[in-house]
Design a protein around this nucleic acid. Structure first.
Lengths: 233, 233, 233, 233
DNA sequence: CATGAATGAGTTTTCATTCAT
DNA sequence: CATGAATGAAAACTCATTCAT
């Protein structure tokens, strides 16, 4: 386990020893916290490292957050995209094909996950769900459910117009979302430690994902697997 | 999908102490360790808990593993499916359509991930990759690469026979694998803490996944996204 | 006996900040300090609480006292009745019986200890004597010794006039003083936390104390404990 | 504030680095704790000092007590004389004068307070009552109330037999108990820091106290303070 | 004068690790 | 082999003190 990268070069700081910035502080602290929590997990993160990375002292953290747990919760809440109304609005857009809407939805989400900060959240939630169940529920309610709602509206519209074939919708949505989730977790875990760079190209990944999803949804001329007995209860 | 099986109640272990065979110990320890590491992460796991869950004393752990890190590595290595030659053999099977092989491959992997123990591994690797890069590489080499090799062979054969259309193969493989990975992580993190049970049905999930994958790979009568400019560098 | 007056609610302080005169500050600070030190002891008292109770900021305390120790010493010195010359004068009063003087002495002291602020001092001295020996000596010199001097003068006069019988005088003085000391400590410690109000009535307590003291001092018709061998070395 | 006396000379310890003494430990720890808590108060006591004085490491304290508060409570409870049935039995003794019983009661209590360990408790309770109200109630119930009950029985018997005069009984009991309480607090606070040794002699103190109490209780030939208006409500 | 954000030394608390039994 | 009491380094947390505003 390697040492943390050293805090931002102190010599580069020209500000006075400390400064009153009660309003700017929280965001800085939470950004530093997100980094360290992402790297080490909740238990492995040291408050001292977070403080150092934010350029403040340990004690300062306690001026803003009562303890490590509160800091962690605030970190996640701060960086969870709280509003997905954009996606919901998109789902209601008229005059556009369902295929086009679905593509936009997936591209929009992919872009959001491209943001370095936000993209760390899914991994963090997955990793710490056992220790912070309320955060897991919060994420499920505030993000997953809302995304799925928009997603569902688009799929249902496509089925209604005949653009998409009918599929078990809840499962299909999870299947379509999975590549993006996995990609964001991959970026924050295994990818940085591979010796040879990945052959996966993000833009091509997204294009292929959209291509495959649309192909998979397209109404089939023939039953996909003739004579195949599919066993869902 | 049901809640995860709760950890074996230590009080419920009734075998007398002397009955435990020395050679069975390591497996018992590693099973307990996997549970606790999965629940709490590496840093959050307490050796005392692992020992208690295995029904031994703290000191006993040190008779088998030099320290916490070694225990963690052994835990992961023990539960990583060490050989995927079965999949590689599958890929070489003659006289079967590539579609059928692909279905078998995905079903085989899904079943493996259905095992409670093995299914915890991906989450653990993702969560601790930063702290244990060598494990990340180990997993990439021993599992991911070998699975991808079999997967690639099948896809290439399908393209050669005209069963599958050509797609950016590396990206496509990740897309096909993602739903299974996500499912296994979901089971070990968020799912157990949702108030209302998930609407996702595992068997239906797998069937839908296979259905969609095969549909997505099927050669298209028309260009999938006509007039669409795809931007991969 | 009622519960102690609660600390002045800071929210209830309505004077505008500018109205506070600089010269009134120290007294306000020391009053707040006495309350907090009495409740929590020296180590347990937080300067932040003292400042808040005085309605000022933490930094302001340092404009008046160099550090916590100085503040504590100033607090005690401020509230120790600095001069007991009144008692000494009393002791020299002519034309009054020693019994009367003794009653006045005890009533005077009891009244002084009835004052909420002063009455906290004995408890504080007792509690912190180990940490602030110089304060213990200061209190012994400035208060105890002077009180005892007046007390001794009165007793000796009563013995000389035949009003009082001879007793080991130093011990007798401590015995006479003890009830008042204990009462003041009781009020500031256990009493406020009892579930049912005490049956002790302060006025009756003082009257009984005076009654018993005078009776104990009255020359006895017979030796107090006939045939009793008293063992003082 | 001076440094703590150093822990028992390590060179004098011939035992191995550590030893299993799960049964002997608690008493040792609580003895050390009582000393340090008495000297410094709850907040001022450092667990490290307590551990050092008990000859163990900091961590060992946590094997026996969950935290500082629990250690403190256990310390007080351990050293509070839990049973005062002896006094209650005494009060029921037949064929002895009430005066004699009262003398025995006071001598018995004085002896108990003469024990170095127990004698520190009253000071501790008084000092920390605000921070540990439940301890204050515990002490009031388990010790004070029981002592007062025995005390009350003896006084009432003496009044019934005509040995004692009637006095406000609750107040009188507190007055009789006060010298002993004060003495024990004095010993643990101011006394050790006086430059010149006290003139108070403990044995003479006790004898004088008994003498005065009995004299004060003896039925008076004349009204104690003729023409005196006593103001109890 | 007064403020209160910031600091960091000092304490409490945790827990991986050791080792006499 | 197994135990679990004991350890002590490391991390969380507190709060007296400072000082730019």
């Amino acid at each position: 386990m390697s040492a943390l990268p050293s805090p931002p070069d102190p010599a580069a700081r020209t500000e006075p020893r400390w400064q009153r910035r009660k309003d700017a502080r929280p965001a800085e602290l939470l950004t530093a916290a997100l980094e360290v929590f992402t790297e080490r997990g909740f238990a492995g993160a040291r408050l001292e490292d977070i403080a150092a990375r934010a350029g403040v002292s340990k004690g300062t953290l306690y001026l803003y957050y009562a303890n490590k747990e509160e800091l962690f919760k605030a970190t996640v809440r701060e960086h969870v995209v709280p509003s997905l109304t954009a996606a919901e609005d998109l789902a209601r857009t008229e005059g556009v094909s369902a295929s086009q809407l679905l593509e936009w939805l997936l591209r929009g989400w992919f872009e959001r996950l491209g943001d370095a900060k936000v993209s760390a959240i899914p991994k963090l939630i997955i990793s710490e769900a056992r220790n912070f169940p309320e955060l897991a529920r919060f994420y499920d309610t505030e993000v997953v459910s809302r995304f799925r709602k928009a997603h569902r509206m688009i799929l249902e519209r496509g089925v209604a117009t005949g653009e998409f074939r009918a599929l078990p919708i809840e499962e299909a949505m999870m299947i379509m979302a999975a590549p993006m989730m996995l990609m964001s977790m991959w970026r924050h875990s295994i990818l940085p430690h591979l010796e040879q760079p990945s052959v996966i190209n993000p833009a091509r990944f997204l294009d292929t994902q959209i291509d495959m999803v649309l192909a998979a949804l397209r109404p089939q001329p023939l039953p996909p697997i003739p004579g195949k007995k599919v066993n869902h209860p």
